[in-house]
Design a protein around this nucleic acid. Structure first.
Lengths: 342, 342
DNA sequence: TTGAAAGCGCTAACAG
DNA sequence: CTGTTAGCGCTTTCAA
């Protein structure tokens, strides 16, 4: 019993007018008299008319839709950004097509192709850890589709980016620790193929150097951004009997891995070893001890990305790519608030 | 410099064939010779052809897209389900249009209308806390759009639902606690207007009754599903000097609120008061003490919902609505593992 | 104020 | 194997 979809024509016939009249009336076009407009709307309502998005957009050559590609979603950082993106889109009567690459660059590429097929008006993209091939981005941009890269960005000149000041944030927290008295500071660094991993590691080093502390290469432990990685990095140093006084974890999950590992070997945080990380989440204040961190403004990441994208969409002809860098702030809780050594 | 989008015709002209040939070739239709197919594909590639999703779907009268409406996204339960939904869709070459109602039933309604406009092939929906008006669901279903209600479902006969055995799960954990020796057990109940709130409260009561424990009405504290609610419920009982030995929180955030409140008034978990909740998350094992809970199979919620939806889509004519109820299991960690009183 | 004609880009049905 | 014809449902001229 597939009920036929109601079309403009159905309404038109009922009223003995043309479908054009109905189309205009429904959109409140001034061409049409108040009376017919009212009539049309009434019938449309009665029949349960629902405009066909595809037909409308095909004809109008505009989708009122923006595409989003993120590497993960079950992660506070991204889900929070996405929620803000949805809010922003909703207020501006835009639809969001969200796709998730699951850190798989092939999948990412496919998603972009799909979004292009859908003729989205623009794309907001946070790349995977190992996206190496930027061709698809270039061709898409050349084809006139506005792009905004958010947080995790490719090494590409002349494109829109909205990032967090990763280097500055890392610098800030390390300097804070140094001021507390810490000197033996390790960094559990993320993947160095991607900007956020590199920048945070850079900020860490810079802060040490600027404060006259020698950089111990053993204390920059490379890994990825996950819990497992934090656990393993800790265990590596532990086995080498080379634990520092403070660990700066590149992400919140990495810090969780450290909690786990430390608990396992019976070292207490923050007395036995202190810990701090980049990135906030809903639950850090419930950890024991509550975890201090560098906070990223997820709402701003969403809003600025959307603003920039809309700006680009509205001024396609003479648009100059912009790079926006957002500031971070420290949230100090139970860790890294005093010097615990000696 | 808006680059014109490449169409079938552009490719056709280049090759001096008709657009139909190109269309077929691109889709690997057996009509077309290997040779032309190859040629067509080459040119399409060279020109960077990207099929127009709208045109294709308008013409084919099928969108290969399914709509999803959830109340929140920055919440482990939902983001986890959504990730699984995306995976499933991706594997089956379907697109997902995800919309977020933010617990606002008006917004929910608008989203459904949008999805209908987009002519999605089906909708998976988890309703808001205070969705009272089910008309839109009914009309949509009458119009032949397959629906699956997931986890949070309306009181509607004869529709597809995939839920967790909330009552059974609550019963299970309470019985576990009783076996441990607990008798003074409170329930920080969620919103009773929605099935999950009601069912969990029901399971709680049933378990008490079945085990010969009197149900103290003061110990069912109604609230909502958020952290704030957990905090306030605790404080209420605390002020009344009426704290139980164990609290069963309706959700994980509510339990977090209890941690907060307990810490604030200097009562220790689990010795001072014990705690357990419905729903798992990535971080409960990091709480102190690690929080035991009733685990919901988010992957199954996603998969079963998708399967059911596809089943309905494929057999529209004679489809009998199904109700699927998924089992829960207990995850025992640092709370509610032994009787701490006296 | 209304409508007829044309077309958005694609596909399905049918001929050749 | 290839192409012609007809339309999907809507919007945008442009004429009445």
């Amino acid at each position: 019993m597939k009920t036929k979809q109601i079309t403009l024509n159905d309404i038109a016939q009922r009223l003995n007018v043309s479908s054009v009249t109905v189309s205009k009336a429904l959109r409140g076009h001034p061409d049409i008299s108040k009376e017919t407009t009212k009539l049309v709307k009434a019938v449309a309502n009665e029949l349960g008319y629902s405009p066909n998005f595809m037909a409308r957009n095909l004809s109008a050559r505009k989708s009122n839709t923006i595409g989003v590609v993120v590497p993960k979603i079950a992660h506070h950082f991204f889900s929070s950004i996405i929620e803000h993106i949805y809010d922003y889109a909703f207020e501006n009567n835009y639809e969001i097509i969200l796709t998730v690459s699951q850190e798989d660059s092939e999948r990412e590429k496919k998603h972009i192709q799909t979004l292009l097929s859908m003729r989205v008006d623009g794309i907001i993209l946070s790349i995977t850890q190992d996206t190496k091939d930027f061709e698809i981005f270039k061709t898409a941009m050349n084809r006139g589709v506005p792009f905004v890269f958010m947080d995790r960005i490719p090494e590409l000149r002349n494109c829109n980016t909205v990032t967090v000041d990763d280097k500055g944030g890392a610098y800030k927290i390390i300097e804070h620790a140094i001021n507390l008295g810490y000197k033996k500071i390790a960094h559990f660094a993320g993947n160095q193929k991607i900007n956020i991993g590199r920048e945070r590691a850079l900020g860490y080093k810079l802060a040490l150097i600027d404060n006259g502390i020698e950089v111990n290469p053993d204390w920059t432990v490379e890994g990825d951004f996950g819990e497992r990685s934090g656990y393993e990095s800790f265990m590596k140093l532990y086995r080498q009997n080379n634990l520092p006084d403070l660990i700066f974890a590149v992400t919140y999950p990495v810090a969780l891995g450290v909690y786990n590992a430390a608990r396992e070997v019976g070292i207490r945080i923050p007395d036995g070893i202190d810990l701090v990380c980049f990135g906030n989440s809903q639950v850090q204040s419930f950890l024991s001890p509550p975890l201090s961190c560098v906070n990223q403004p997820t709402d701003q990441l969403a809003v600025k990305s959307m603003e920039l994208l809309f700006d680009n969409i509205d001024n396609k002809e003479e648009f100059e790519p912009k790079q926006i860098i957002l500031d971070t702030n420290l949230i100090l809780r139970g860790t890294c608030i005093k010097y615990n050594r000696m």
